[in-house]
């Protein structure tokens, strides 16, 4: 090559390249650092969630008031997270509830695999404005569910919709996603009992 490469520019090149490489490698690291950072920032500040429905018994002060003037339709939904060979569904699809009164709804679950699997249900409420007014007093989602091969179970949920629920909300959907806690489905896709 006839490109004039006096030592000045070569030295300049090296320095520029060094800094740019450091930047690139650093940003690759930053990508991974986002994992703990995200968890930390979100758990400290709560920025990531508008209001989350937790899988714990409600500790919020439940108003004792009963609102007989209206009813709210609560729809139940059960979804299985990828690959878990379970069946999971609500036994009642819909309930007309009076705010302030306590209700019970059952969910059915069955393990179709030939192994014991530990699952955990994660709840979510739509619309999110209803979240803080939906109180679960008893729920299968408070604990993990261990099901032996082929075992089935009916799981209870007891809840109250708070009378302070904004008037314009007439429908609530409670949706559970059932997670495979030890990701056994991913580890062994074999061994399904056909139904």
């Amino acid at each position: 090559m006839t490109i004039e490469t006096n030592s000045q520019t070569v030295f300049g090149h090296r320095r520029t390249i060094k800094w740019l490489l450091i930047l690139a490698v650093g940003m690759f690291g930053f990508g991974f650092a986002m994992v703990p950072l995200y968890k930390l920032v979100c758990s400290v500040t709560g920025w990531n969630s508008i209001d989350s429905n937790s899988a714990q018994a409600s500790t919020a002060d439940i108003s004792q008031e009963i609102d007989l003037d209206r009813t709210v339709t609560v729809t139940f939904d059960g979804t299985i997270n990828a690959g878990l060979p379970w069946e999971f569904k609500p036994l009642v699809r819909k309930l007309e509830v009076t705010p302030g009164k306590s209700y019970k709804a059952d969910f059915y679950v069955k393990n179709y695999s030939n192994r014991e699997i530990v699952g955990q249900a994660i709840p979510g409420i739509t619309p999110w404005q209803g979240t803080e007014h939906f109180h679960k007093t008893e729920c299968f989602c408070f604990t993990q569910q261990t099901l032996a091969a082929g075992e089935s179970r009916v799981m209870p949920l007891r809840f109250t919709v708070d009378a302070r629920l904004p008037k314009e909300i007439k429908f609530l959907t409670l949706s559970y996603t059932l997670m495979d806690t030890d990701r056994s489905a991913l580890k062994a896709n074999a061994g399904l009992v056909k139904h």
């Binding site: 690139a24 490698v25 650093g26 940003m27 690759f28 690291g29 930053f30 990508g31 991974f32 986002m34 994992v35 997270n81 990828a82 878990l84 994660i122 996603t177 997670m179 495979d180 806690t181 990701r183 991913l186 580890k187």
Partner: peptide, 26 residues
């Protein structure tokens, strides 16, 4: 670009090596 490369690498790990960067179950 490195951040994106990192992100899809984590995806690859979740798919094949049992990590749970993005898998709620884990």
């Amino acid at each position: 670009m490195p951040v994106f490369a990192g992100g899809v690498t984590m995806l690859l790990f979740d798919r094949h090596f049992g990590t749970s960067f993005f898998d709620a179950a884990g």
